[in-house]
């Protein structure tokens, strides 16, 4: 019955999509993702990104079955099930995070989806799907013809250069899954109906979810359907533990602290009114575009702070 509903819905979207091209693009990509989400596999993946600070890479072991994804990056393990995230620390403790009320996935209208050639990845036949922004390929996906899993993905910067590549070094259709972990601690992410705290859109990314972030901050999850980032905003400066290896980077007159990781980039800065953190997987040019639309770094407004101190 569910399959019938999906097929019917997809067919309806395709009909509507004939009149609204954006919907057709979204429906086509969604169908690829839906199939990949149901894939069963295990394998070892290599993620590598070319950044201005040098190459960032990491090996990740993945297993997926029945909607549960187990991720192991070596120093810890995560189990991602729908609505729940379990972090298994090296000492055996388990932290579960839950999140309700998220917005559904959607693809921004600036993207177009284009089917590419058939390629061979790890000896397996894969269909290439390109997500384009105008003439620019932003994301290249290679879907395994047998399982539907994404065997390789490549994201591109605005100048056409490769930003990040994630590809399986080994792949098996046999998923190796252990028992679901039992959490000692559970943290619920609380959705917020915050209006005006964070912009609805940033450089073409829509604010999909707003919730209470760490230390009482306001967190906004933004996505354009391809790339995603989170913005944390507080009324105080933010110190991020372990961020000693960050470097200062300037865009124009604005200076930020930045850390490149394999697949993610983190920015932190202090404005006149508080602290901000940006963490996302978007390519380099989109990082700068997003920063340009957020409050700029600046020295504390002494008078304003004095006034707030006196009168709240």
């Amino acid at each position: 019955m569910r399959r019938f509903a999906i097929v019917t819905g997809f067919g309806l979207l395709m009909v509507i999509g004939g009149a609204v091209p954006g919907l057709a693009q979204e429906a086509e990509l969604d169908s690829w993702f839906e199939r990949a989400k149901g894939a069963e596999f295990s394998g070892r993946q290599f993620v590598v990104c070319e950044t201005p600070d040098g190459e960032r890479s990491e090996f990740v072991t993945l297993s997926q079955m029945d909607g549960v994804l187990v991720v192991d990056a070596g120093s810890g393990q995560s189990v991602i099930s729908r609505g729940e995230l379990y972090d298994l620390a090296a000492d055996g403790t388990v932290l579960a995070s839950t999140f309700d009320g998220h917005s559904p996935w959607s693809l921004d209208s600036r993207y177009e989806v284009s089917d590419g050639a058939t390629v061979t990845v790890l000896g397996r036949q894969a269909d290439v799907v390109n997500v384009l922004e105008g003439e620019l390929v932003r994301l290249e996906l290679a879907f395994d013809q047998t399982t539907g899993a994404v065997l390789r993905s490549v994201s591109f910067n605005g100048d056409g250069s490769v930003y990040c590549t994630s590809s399986f070094l080994s792949f098996s259709e046999d998923a190796v899954m252990g028992a679901m972990p039992v959490a000692q601690t559970t943290a619920a992410i609380v959705p917020l109906e915050a209006q005006g705290v964070l912009p609805d859109t940033l450089a073409g990314f829509g604010r999909r979810d707003t919730f209470v972030g760490p230390a009482g901050s306001v967190a906004g999850f933004y996505s354009d359907g391809i790339f995603s980032f989170t913005v944390l905003a507080t009324d105080r400066a933010i110190n991020i533990a372990g961020l000693a290896q960050s470097t200062a980077v300037s865009f124009g007159d604005d200076t930020y602290q930045r850390v490149f990781l394999a697949g993610r980039t983190l920015y932190s800065w202090t404005t006149r009114d508080g602290g901000f953190v940006l963490l996302g997987d978007q390519p380099l040019d989109l990082q700068e575009a997003v920063l340009a639309e957020l409050p700029e770094p600046g020295r504390a407004n002494l008078i304003k702070r004095f006034w707030r101190r006196l009168f709240g």
Partner: peptide, 20 residues
């Protein structure tokens, strides 16, 4: 949040395939 929007690992490997 990224893990719940229906995207599979690979397409979102750079986001959700991070356990540590």
């Amino acid at each position: 949040p990224a893990s719940q929007d229906g995207l599979p690992p690979g397409a979102r490997a750079v986001v959700i395939a991070r356990s540590s």
